[in-house]
Structures are given as C-alpha cells and as structure tokens.
Design a protein around this nucleic acid. Sequence first.
DNA 1: TTGTAGGCGTTATCAT
DNA 2: ATGATAACGCCTACAA
Lengths: 343, 343
Amino acid sequence: MSGVTITDVAQRVGVSVATVSRYLSGFNVRQRDEIENAIHELNYRPSAAARNLKSGRTGTIAIVVPDISNPFFAAIATGAETVAGEEHMVMLVNSGAIREREEKILGELFGRVDGVILSPLQEDDEGPSFFSKYGLPIVFVDRITADAEKFDSVLVDNVKGARLATEHLIQLGHQKIAMITGPLHTTPGRLRAEGYTSALRKQKIALQESYLIESDFTREGGYASMVKLLEDPNPPTAVITGNNFMSIGALEALKEKRVRIPDDISIIGFDDLDFSTLIEPGLTAVFRHFEAQGAEAMRILLARISALATNTELSPQHSVVDVHLIERGSCAPPTGLPAQSKS
Amino acid sequence: MSGVTITDVAQRVGVSVATVSRYLSGFNVRQRDEIENAIHELNYRPSAAARNLKSGRTGTIAIVVPDISNPFFAAIATGAETVAGEEHMVMLVNSGAIREREEKILGELFGRVDGVILSPLQEDDEGPSFFSKYGLPIVFVDRITADAEKFDSVLVDNVKGARLATEHLIQLGHQKIAMITGPLHTTPGRLRAEGYTSALRKQKIALQESYLIESDFTREGGYASMVKLLEDPNPPTAVITGNNFMSIGALEALKEKRVRIPDDISIIGFDDLDFSTLIEPGLTAVFRHFEAQGAEAMRILLARISALATNTELSPQHSVVDVHLIERGSCAPPTGLPAQSKS
DNA sequence: TTGTAGGCGTTATCAT
DNA sequence: ATGATAACGCCTACAA
C-alpha cells in the first residue's frame, strides 16, 4: 500500500483526522484548500479496505462466470454495467469452469463485494446457493443450482428455444434431427436437450440415441460432435448446436468435410454469432438478448441488496428471458446426405 | 455482511478469538474440531476487508480494459490468469473507454488490489501512471501513457505489424493502399498508422490523405470507414484494418456493397479473427499471441510486487511481443475497382 | 466547525 | 498452546 494515511494528511495540515475525513465526505471544512493541497502533495488515497470494514459496504458487484472469453458472458457483464450506476463498480471473475476455483473465488469475494451475479458450474452443487446464506446476496444468471427456487435467478427460455429450432426443422420436413448440447449437469445443457426431445416427442418422432450428443460448450467439442454425427451410419439431415462456440466448431467440421449447407445438411445454432452476416450462408439461430439478461440480473441484485439493507421481505425473483428464431440461410428441406461421404 | 464474526465463533467454542484466528491460519490448535464445527454451524466466513486492512495484502489483481467485450482483452485476462497462480485472484474491470470511469475505477481499486494491469485510454493522460506513485504497482498492456518509459509495460510490435501488412500489399503490386486505424491518441492507433506510413515512405509511395482514416476500433467505425473509402473518387485497391472489430465492420461493408475479395480489393486485418476459418476467403491477418501478452504482463506485475515487498530495486520492464503475418485468401495483385461502382 | 475516541473484524505481539 | 490487547485506516457519534 501507499503508506500515506489520513493521519499523515491531518498532521501536515494541522487538523484532526476527523476533519480530513469530513472533507473527504464532502462536508464543508474551514481549511479545505490546505487539505486538498496536502492530499495532492502526499499522494494520499483513501484505503478502500478500511472504508469497507468500517461501513460494511463495498460499492462493488462481482460477476462470476465459467468462461470469460465467451462473448455471451462478456455481454452479461456489459449489460449489468448499464444498470449498476455510479454506486457500484462491477468486476468480472472467471471461474474457468473449474469447481474448486469457483468455490475459492466465492470465498474470497466475501467481505469484498455487496453482491454476486453468478453462473454456477453445476446444478448439483449446493455451494453457491449456500453461499447466499452467508449473508451475501446472489443472483443466478444463465445457470442455476438444484435448490435455486429459493434464490433470485435470470434464465433464458432454453426449452422454448430448443423447441423452436426443432419444430422449425420438422416443419421443413426433417425427421433425422440431431442435437449437440452442453453438459447435462448444467442448466442450458439440460434444458436445451429437454426442449429438443420434447419437441420430437410431440411430433411423434422417435429419439435416436446417437443424435443427442452431450458435449461441452467448446469449439473443439462442437467440432468433434459434428464429426461424429457425420460418421454416423445413418447421419442426420439437420443439426442443432447448443451454444455459440459449438456452432463455430460444427461449422468448421462441415466446411472441412465439404458438407454443403443447407444442401447437404441444415443447421441451427442456439445463440446468434456476432459475425453471422459474414458467413455464407448465414446461420439460422435462436436469438436471445445477452445484455438484457445481464441488466435484469443486476436489477434484481440491486433490489435484493436494498431489501436486505432495509430489512424488507422480498420473495425470490425468477426472471425468464424470451427467445425467438432468426431465420437465415442455413436451413432447407432435407435431401439426404451423400451416402457415407466418409472415406 | 454476514454479521457472524470470528468473535462469535470463539464465544461458541469457548476460546479466544486468537485461537480461532490461529486455527484459520493453519496452526495446530487443541479444539480444532469444535472450532470447525462452530464455523460450519454459524456459517462463518472471514471478512476479506478486515484481512486486507490488517495485512496490507489483498491477493487480488485487477485488469482494467477499455472494452471487456473485445475478445482480445478477454484473452489478456485468461492469459494473465494462467500465470497468477493460487496466490492471486484476477478480476476484470471495464472502463468502457470512458475516461472518468477509468479514473474512478483506479481510485476505487486502491486498497483493494495488490496490483493493476491496465490498458489506458489515452496516451496523453498522466492519471494512470501517476497512480502508480500512489504505491500501487501497475503494468501497462497493449497501450501506454506518454510517460510510460518509467513504468512496466507489455506492447505488441505495432509498427512492425503494420509494416508487414503494408509491405505485403506493396509486394503484390498495390500502390493505392488504405489504412483504417484507431484513435491516434491511443498507442495501437498511433503506432499502427506509423508502421503503415513508414512502410509507404520507405517504398517511396506518397501517402494519400484520404487513405489514412482515423476511426475508433469499433465495428461500426470499421464499416463507416470502409464505406468512405469505397466512395473515394480514387478508391484504394487494398485496405488494412486496424483491429479485429474494424475488420468485421469493413468486411460487412464490402459484402454489402458486393465488392469482391480479393478480386476487387485486398484486405489485411490487424489481429486475427477467431472465425477466420469460416469466412470466404480467409482473412490475411497480422497475428499476435493474445494470451501470451496477458501472461507476460502478469509475470512482470508479480515481479514488481515482490520487488516492492522486498524493497528490491527493479528497473521498468518493457516487453514487446512479436507479430507475424498469416496469409490467407484476402489478398491478390490489384486489378482496380470497378470504376465508381457506387450509384 | 472541530476534536476525541470507540469500533469495524482480523492478525500479531506479548505474556501466561 | 492459549488469552488479552494493540494495531490496521477509516468513519461517526458525542462533546466541545
């Protein structure tokens, strides 16, 4: 630390620390100019740590996400920032999809932030929600834990999104529809798979085991999954990818294998790609407003914080963000893959 | 806050706070089991604020960047994380390219972090570097301030990158080469323009004013700049875009105006796009290793922190990351734009 | 308006 | 091994 404290400033000017403190808080003080000078000359900066300790408030909100490099999570943060206002600084922390790290981070955050917006790594983990009992307001976003009904949350309508995609393909005439979803122990992984299977069921299309692939939300996972589907003895005529990264990976695989879109295979991505306009054909996608989700989470968190401060009762908020399908050029009626195009 | 403190735990067990504190620090204590139980039952969590205040250490590093949604800066953060180790939690804060926010953030960070990795908004601003005199170690990354020679920094070889791009185009036979760069008050904006002009100079190609466009590192800026170039009465046959977002915008403009790449115009991007493989033709680009830059910055910062702790002298480190050109399909010898293709 | 002093939750020093 | 206690830097009654 700097070493220079409020006491140094006070001594320099010849007043008490209280006076300096008052000046800092905007009160009217006789020697305000002298104090200001002293502060500049000494390079004095109030210690946030000491302030936090004294006030109990930190003016900071942390957003903890599994993958900081995913534009979706970055957008959550920027959305949250728009709502945070002057009172709160928001900082983004990466759990890197490692559970021990998430746990450690939450622990270290305690006493450092006024609240947390969290995208928990696993549904079957009480750690994060338990954490809120430690007195720290927490809002789940994009993902929840099993006991999340007792906590605030903002989810997207995953089931509807996957269903929209599936039904769109069915309406085009597809019967052999595959889905590359994320880990089933995550909320979006599970619910998107659910939307897919429920749509098939409703249309009386039997679910083929090999068409539902549980991957990992990464580009590499999307690539590998798509390769696997292409190698299927009875390959699908359409594929739904469970998130943006997996869409990219899947598209890479298709390009590499020279499978034409949508002639040979149709594809729909869950989540739009921000360069959709640059690829040919454009990717039909399930769209949700990223920033809106972050903004909503922050709104709920701030409400929760002030409820806590004023000791007001406030039942858990469960916000669900709507989705819709954006049609571009990546879907067409099925014509069948060139049989066994693999060597 | 939780309200439950170390005192509560101590009372519950019937020991002194000192004993509980010792247990927390890993010392051997007689009633360790009882203490552990009490901690669990009471949901006790040590307050980071109090610890910070007492120890002067926070175990936290902040990375402050102008645009959290730019994959480059996200990569800086993940790169830094790989080096941070167990001792330090890293958090990302978005200045949003707003100077007042950057200033406020730096102020609030004081006393909350052990060091800062910063991408400052403007070169002509002493605020950030001055900040380090407040006692907080700071490492500049990607951008520096005017007085930065006195501080640690990690830059990419911007001049070389822009020169490589320019020379590549010249070698292909281009004479009418344009550059869309970022704000000239930022380091990359300025130096990339410099590399471009110096390469032209060396090859005795006169710089045409209208070919050097100062834009703003955004997609919209890239788009608008490219449109402007296309509308030039004497349009360029090749364009270099100054960052990833502007590349996307420029490509959008070209696609929209049906200008063919590389037949009608050649284009090189500064910074690779992570979906380069998906667009046709692939974008020739100046490549630099994002994560390596973040990792290097963290390495230097940690060294600085420990030098400060041990009172060791350590002269400012200036690390420059190398770049190279990745050739894909977006460049070809000039054939001239279809004259005045604009309506 | 100003100063004094107690306390925020922890850790570290000193005895015991 | 344990307890009492003094800091850490700041804020805020309470007094003056």
